[in-house]
Every structure is written in structure tokens, then in C-alpha cells.
Simulated assay, not measured.
Amino acid sequence: MDKLSVMHAFRRIVERGSFARAAEDLGVSPALLSREVKLLEEGLGTSLLTRTTRSMALTEAGRVYYEEAQGILDAVAAAEARIRDGAGAVRGRLRVNAPVSFGQVVIAPALPALLEAHPGLELTLSLDDRVVDMVEGGFDLSIRIRPAMPDSALRVRRIGTVRQRVFASPDYLARAGTPERPGDLAGHRIIGFLMADHLASWTLEGEGGPVTVALDPPVQVGSSLALRDLLIAGQGIGTLPDFVSDPAEASGELVRVLPGWELPPPGIYALSASRVGMDARGAAFLEHLRGALRAGGHS
């Protein structure tokens, strides 16, 4: 039994959550994968997976083996890449998924420098505000902005932080009045962000907080850029991430509402499901992205 091949197959089974999907990826039969895992378990003298007709889960021994196998496979792949391409070479295709507004405002301006520095890099950047299955979608890296990331088989690195604050246009506030405390928001027209965890309520942190305000936004949009434009047009009050709000605030098109309060800052996370997210391609992309985040004050 080729231990490295079995480790690779086992990792793929865990990442895909299915013998059938892993077998399809690897070009072998599910029966062969099942037999190899059984032989592996017999050799180790313990079960690595608990399987039923409808689900599959790692045992504690399986979790340890999976984590150790990841390290071994990544080390082997890195050694091969250094020998094949030369240390630090950045070549080949990198597939990245990111939220739409973050991709447009933060990632896109950083791409010219990345591509000029690494002409051998081929890049696919997919922008989608929905949380996609990055393994199913074939992505090497996924950038997500969330208050926290749930436990998963994916590798998660926090690469920055976003400030999420409340804004309106000067015209709206002149017409509708300026909230003095979080509870005053209930009397205002709220523009909600469909993809946010805080669509129906805002938990604001301040000197007297946290305070949670229940809301029923009459207007709800699925793009923070569209939300920004509605706020600039005087349509109401809403929350925006700082990478979207900073230019409009600097120009005076938007002003802070309840300046002593803001939502808990979500993190910017880089997720990878395979060694590609850790190799020279992924490292180069994240290096340029971190530079953009530092320049914007999001590190």
C-alpha cells in the first residue's frame, strides 16, 4: 500500500465529505477507496471514520491522522514544487473566490501589482456574496468576511479586520433628524444588507453597550455598493464596512450616525482546502492582499 497515495485519498474523502465524490475527483472507484481506508484502519488498529448510509464523520483518531497527513502531504508538495519550479516560483493557475464589494474595492486594485510581479501566475477571481462551497466550486482560496468562522476541515487564516459602522447622508439627517441613541433607530428608515447576519437587528457596541436594536428594513439589497449608493441618495440609514464607506465619508457624501457606536468588527479570513492555498501562488496572492489591507488600515 502506497502510504502517500492513501494519505492523499483519505484527505480528499474528508474534504469532500463523501467516498463517491472523492473517488470521482481521484478517478478511481468508491469501492477501491473504501478498501484502502479499511486496510489503513486495520494497519493502525483503530477506526478513522464513522460511517452510516447517510453520513460520515471523523473519529478522534481520524482527526489526528487527517491533520498529520495534511502536514506531510503539504511538505512533500512544497519540496516537489521547489525542485520543479525553483524556490519561490509563482506559476500556474490560482482560483480565488471573494465577496463582490470586497473584490471590487480591495482585491481588484491590488491585482495589477500582483500580476506584474508574477507574470507566470494565472488567476481566476470569482466574486459572489453567497457563501459557496469552495471545494465543490474548485477554488484554491476563498476570502470571507464574517464575525467568526465555524470549525471545518478547511484551513482558516485571519488576515485582517473590518469596521462596520452606521451611516446616512447629510440630506437624510437634515430631513429626518439625527438619532441620539441606538433606540432612536427604530423610528428611522433602515436600508438592510441581505447577506448580513445583522439584517433584522443591530448589536451596537459603545460606552453603554452592547445594545441590540430590532429592525424591519423596508428596503433590503444584496450589495453593499448598492446600499452605499442608496444611503448617498438620502434613502435612509444603514451599516457599511469601512472599505466601502471610507471614500464616501471622506468626501462628505455620508456621515457617521451614532459615532460612539459600531457593530462588532468582523474578520477577514482566507480559507484554503488544499496545498495550493499554501504554495507560492497562494502566498503571493495573500502577500499582495495583506499589503492592500495594511494600506487601508484593515490589518
Rank of each mutant, 00 (worst) to 15 (best):
I143Y: 07
S101R: 00
L199V: 12
R93I: 10
A77T: 08
R290E: 13
R294A: 15
K38S: 14
R256Y: 03
E60R: 15
S101D: 12
H198K: 07
G177N: 07
V37A: 03
E287F: 12
D279N: 15
S274P: 13
I143C: 09
A108V: 14
H188M: 09
S251L: 09
A77P: 02
R155P: 06
D246W: 06
P179L: 04
R228L: 13
S272N: 05
L141H: 01
D242S: 14
D85T: 10
Q70M: 02
I72H: 06
Q164L: 15
V90M: 13
V106F: 12
I159N: 01
W261P: 06
V156A: 02
F10K: 11
K38W: 12
L194S: 00
A98L: 08
L204G: 04
S47H: 14
T124H: 04
F193W: 02
A295P: 08
F285Y: 10
T124N: 06
L215M: 04
L111P: 02
L127V: 13
D74K: 01
S251N: 11
A214K: 11
G138E: 10
V131Q: 14
R157E: 14
S272K: 05
T161S: 10
I232A: 12
A98Q: 03
R228P: 02
E180V: 04
L127A: 12
D184C: 07
A186K: 15
L215P: 05
F19N: 00
H288L: 11
D128K: 09
A250V: 13
R158M: 05
G282M: 12
D129A: 07
A273F: 03
P179Q: 00
V219G: 03
D242P: 10
V244S: 09
I13L: 15
G71L: 13
G103Y: 03
G137F: 08
E180F: 03
R189C: 01
G88T: 05
P241L: 12
D140M: 07
I145L: 09
R95D: 06
A295S: 13
R21S: 13
A81G: 03
L254F: 05
L293D: 03
E67K: 10
E287H: 13
G260I: 11
P259L: 00
D171L: 12
P150V: 04
A226V: 03
A214E: 14
F285Q: 01
L121H: 00
V6T: 15
Y66D: 12
R275W: 14
E36W: 09
R189W: 06
L227W: 00
I191V: 15
P109Y: 13
P150Q: 07
T46K: 08
I237K: 00
T178K: 14
S47Y: 02
D197Q: 04
S223M: 03
D25H: 13
R63H: 07
R93V: 06
V221G: 00
V244T: 08
